[in-house]
């Protein structure tokens, strides 16, 4: 494209780069390369230990054929049922608390002080990973499913209230305005103007969170929060890979089943 090439009667074309500023472009490339080399350089990998472990990895994979459901069946069933109860209870509690917080955290319907308060609640409940919360709740409430339920409920609030609030902010304001113009009260306005608009998303999010809570309930047990996680932890500790495989298969099956049903429910709601 330079003057010389035009003068020669040939014009060259090169694809314009993704980032126009050459300094920034090369800076990013070099920075990325330097970071990666440093990161990989400081990552200590004990290759002999990895090498030693490979047979164990093979053993784990082989354990899937066939997995051992039988020898620890009582533990598996107990842990699994506990996980299911925890999932159900924490999802319901979390959602019930989330709804008012979501209403308060939607900028288009909440007054500013309420908005900031609810957004702060959401930010706090989102800032820690579930497991870290679980460690502290186990300290406070003792070992067992109650600590797990509190953890999962709190995590549900951060997730559910945030996404529901975003959906409320995205709704069609004209429909809500029309209901307000009829002279209905605040609750009637929610019930007629807003609820129908956010209901599909509400149900979709509930199912999605149910799915997440089930998966998370499998890990809060690792730190003492009840559920199947404890059983799984024991199985790995004792290198009982065939039992562990059985548990993982059950978890995957339940998650798949939930996903399948929730797809159906969502279509039905639409």
């Amino acid at each position: 494209m330079t003057d010389v090439s035009v003068a020669l009667g040939r014009r060259r074309w090169k694809r314009p780069p993704l980032i126009a500023n050459p300094l920034l472009r090369w800076g990013l490339v070099v920075g990325g390369a330097v970071y990666l080399s440093f990161a990989l350089g400081t990552t200590e990998v004990n290759w002999s230990r990895v090498w030693e472990g490979l047979p164990r990895g093979k053993q784990f994979l082989l354990a899937f054929a066939p997995p051992d459901f039988v020898s620890r069946w009582d533990d598996i069933l107990d842990g699994l049922l506990e996980s299911l109860w925890m999932t159900a209870v924490s999802t319901v509690i979390g959602i019930v608390i989330s709804v008012p917080i979501a209403l308060g955290a939607a900028r288009n319907i909440a007054p500013l002080p309420v908005y900031y308060f609810c957004r702060a609640v959401i930010a706090v409940s989102r800032s820690f990973q579930e497991i870290i919360l679980a460690i502290f709740f186990v300290k406070l409430f003792g070992f067992g499913p109650f600590a797990g339920v509190v953890t999962l409920s709190l995590a549900t609030i951060g997730f559910f209230a945030k996404l529901l609030a975003e959906d409320i902010e995205d709704m069609d304001a004209a429909q809500a305005e029309a209901v307000r113009a009829t002279g209905g009260g605040w609750f009637q306005w929610l019930n007629y103007g807003i609820q129908p608009q956010v209901l599909p998303r509400f149900i979709g999010l509930s199912l999605y969170r149910l799915d997440i809570n089930l998966r998370e309930s499998a890990v809060v047990g690792i730190v003492g929060g009840g559920g199947i996680g404890a059983t799984l932890n024991t199985a790995f500790d004792r290198y009982e890979f065939d039992s562990a495989a059985a548990i993982l298969i059950v978890i995957i099956a339940i998650v798949m089943g939930l996903e399948y049903t929730s797809g159906h429910v969502r279509r039905w709601v639409q």
Partner: peptide, 21 residues
């Protein structure tokens, strides 16, 4: 205001019906 709004009917551009009802 609620009582007063009852006495004023409003018809909207783009209808503003609650679509899922």
């Amino acid at each position: 205001l609620r009582r007063a709004r009852r006495r004023m009917g409003m018809i909207f551009q783009e209808y503003a019906l609650v679509e899922r009802l």
